[in-house]
């Protein structure tokens, strides 16, 4: 297991570095005078020159890249260029919690819905149930997340006042209960938006295991119950496709998060990235983008580790 993780490390580092480089290049070619936007009304040529020197703006591209990289690796994320010039590490710290909560709850909701509905539709052996489940998945996978969010928000929060309206309550301000009650609804949207792919993959895998695999027949011939057959035998062997989807989806989720944060007015990573890129806030943008890349890479590593835990063949091959 350890060897597998170590073997993956170089790839992971390359991907994170590459993403940082890509982000850096994008920020580099962005037009607009950073110095002017920092100084605002206090613009003087002397001050501008001083700031340019501070930010290494007059250095060539690669030197600037490596100096940024050096700072990043040593944990110096710098300060935001936009007033009130907060520490980027503080900005990240504030943005991570809402996004982390949303991703966690959203992913849990998606997996529970995906696995649950797939098992329901397959185990019931009932065509009507199966059709209904498929239809739900089709609807959810064919409505863009923001439309789903807008419609459900209007319906549940404004018309029926069933859920807390938009906005974000930090646990320090309103306590964890309030915090979670506010994040749960956007997480649900995220979950609804992601579960159909998982459900379809899992359902297909379940069906193919149940129909084609001899070990299922053997288990049936042993006389054990359908419940035990599914939970003890088939579920685990069907989970590998689901894991792959979870891994692939992580990157897609981040895109979804940006949109859902915009609808619900949640100050998370998506908002931070979007605003910092739009406002040419290079330190904040680079740090947050690289952070997302690290998150994606680590999530994929976790998926591979889960794979090895669930499949003894992979585990043996890795060690």
């Amino acid at each position: 297991m350890l060897r597998m993780i170590l073997g993956r490390l170089p790839q992971m580092v390359i991907v994170v570095l590459g993403t940082g480089f890509l982000a850096f290049s994008i920020m580099f070619v962005l037009p607009g005078d950073v110095v002017r936007s920092i100084l605002g009304d206090n613009y003087t040529p002397q001050a501008a020159a001083q700031i340019s020197a501070q930010l290494h703006l007059n250095q060539p591209f690669l030197i600037r890249y490596f100096s940024w990289l050096g700072d990043f690796v040593t944990g110096q994320l710098g300060t935001s260029l936009i007033p009130p010039h907060q520490q980027v590490s503080d900005l990240l710290g504030q943005a991570l919690l809402p996004t982390g909560e949303m991703l966690l709850f959203g992913q849990i909701i998606a997996i529970v819905l995906g696995v649950g509905l797939a098992v329901l539709s397959v185990a019931s052996r009932n065509r009507v149930v199966d059709r209904i489940v498929q239809a739900i998945a089709l609807v959810c996978s064919s409505i863009p997340g923001f439309v789903l969010g807008l419609l459900l928000l209007e319906l549940l929060a404004v018309q029926f006042q069933l859920v807390s309206p938009r906005g974000w309550v930090a646990p320090a301000d309103g306590g964890w209960g309030e915090n979670i009650s506010h994040i749960l609804f956007p997480s649900l949207i995220l979950g609804l938006f992601t579960f159909p792919v998982m459900m379809r993959v899992f359902r297909a895998e379940l069906v193919s295991q149940l129909d084609d695999e001899d070990y299922v027949t053997l288990a049936r011939l042993k006389g054990i119950s359908t419940g035990r057959l599914i939970f003890r035998h088939v579920l685990r062997n069907s989970s590998f496709g689901l894991l792959t989807v979870v891994g692939i989806n992580v990157a897609r989720l981040v895109g979804g998060v940006v949109v859902i944060e915009a609808i619900f007015g949640i100050p998370g990573m998506g908002t931070l990235i979007k605003n910092s890129v739009q406002q040419h806030d290079t330190p904040a943008a680079l740090a947050s983008i690289t952070f997302v890349a690290i998150f994606v890479v680590v999530a994929n590593l976790l998926v591979d580790i889960a794979y090895a835990i669930l499949d003894p063949r992979v585990r043996d091959a890795a060690s």
């Binding site: 001899d214 070990y215 027949t217 006389g223 685990r236």
Partner: peptide, 18 residues
């Protein structure tokens, strides 16, 4: 399950791999 049992052609597929 009480009176009869089946031995499969391919033992690899007949056993749960996990």
């Amino acid at each position: 399950s009480r009176v009869a049992a089946l031995v499969f052609q391919n033992p690899t597929r007949a056993l749960n791999p996990t």
